[in-house]
Design a protein around this nucleic acid. Sequence first.
RNA 1: GUGGCUGUAGCUCAAUCGGUUAGAGCACCGGUCUGUGGCACCGGGGGUUGCGGGUUCAAUUCCCGUCAGCCACCCCA
Length: 425
Amino acid sequence: MAQGALPGFRDFYPEQFAERAYIMDVWRRVLRRYAFAEYDGPPLEPLDLYRKKSGDELVGQLYSFTDKGDRQVAMRPEMTPTFARMVAARANALRKPVRWFSVPQLFRYERQQKGRLREHFQLNVDIVGESAVTADAELLSIALDIMRELGFTSAGVKARVSDRRLLQALLTHAGASEDAMPAVFAVIDKLGREPAALSREKLDSIVGADVSGRIDSFLALENIDVLSSAYENIPEVAEHVERMRKYFEYLHALGFADWVTLDLSIVRGLAYYTGIVFELFDTAGEYRAICGGGRYDTLLDTLGGVDLPALGFGMGDVVVGELLRSRALIPATAPRTDYWVAGEDESLISTVMSIATQLRGRDKSVEYALKPQQLSRQLRSAVAAGASHAILLKHAQLDAGEVTVRDLAEGTERSVRLTELINSL
RNA sequence: GUGGCUGUAGCUCAAUCGGUUAGAGCACCGGUCUGUGGCACCGGGGGUUGCGGGUUCAAUUCCCGUCAGCCACCCCA
């Protein structure tokens, strides 16, 4: 058997390429509606660019090597550092808020599994320079609008939202100490991925049973109004609850109230997020997160030395593609050939070419048999190619300047002057 | 990186208990067809049974290794 693609890499045959193009078309179409501009950067970056943000554990998962100039380089595993560099370099000149998106191919050296390869295309959407919660609502609205455009409804896809500032305030109010916070976040992040009893046990050992019990009960809250009335008299929490309440209000105004649920256990790893965070899931729970993002107000400072608030999300093509395929939501590709030109015998090949050229001059997609074939065989090829019309050339008709145009879907045909046909296009 | 399952034609599968030249459908190419497509019939190309080693008179079949795929873990995008 022939050598295939490298593990975790994909060959895109025309059928797969069509799926990928469909997804990317939707991404670009929706982002244009939200007035975002597309950018890109290099697929290969200095290894150090990723060391700063991620530390050495992540470096182990990078597709990295030493180039011929003895530079340590890595295939980009994410877009954010590149984005941060680009924004930082022109921070003063850019009109704020910056509304940019990109569709980079990203790489990571990891064992592949469901919904996860060593390479994928990921839509990256970012807003820079706006700290108001309106920006958070606008951002999530984009992710949800994409899912709607792809054919999903609020019954099939849900966004779970949280806010790290709110979670922190609630934890503090429940009695968790500053020192315990990172460990508590780690346990909360793992809720749902490990048995509830184990999580509870870990939590008990970090903060004690009393605090742990209080944490358990507020994590279960899914209704912002309940949360709101429970904490309205506790200023250090109420401030953050109020922001979340507004977030829901704005999402309602943007038309996505049904798609969003509060879930304080959403932490988004232990990464760089500082505020509102969200993840999109299929409601059947078959796939990993479709998309994730949130606010990262300190990252541009860390990476680029520019203190600007920012927020963004990433959405990969692999999970989205699997989900679309399983829900039969990928539209059939349209026939790609407009005309198939067929001659009744070999002597007409030059005429076939000439007519094909005229049709192509009218921006039509045209094919014809490259070797002599019987007319029946040519028509069979035309159908197989998905052509919508065949143009049949016969000596008797050509003498009068006419050709036969056959509608391959209807099975009807008509005789028409060649010049008229061309000029009508 | 760890563990489990699976590898036969481009695809889906077959091959008795380990036994002759590894078969079939679909797809592809051609013929019947000097002619107007999807049908039918006939023919053709395509395989180091993932790869390597072992056991055996004999391995697609049993054993070991390896590679690849799937799934889960780790971790995250």
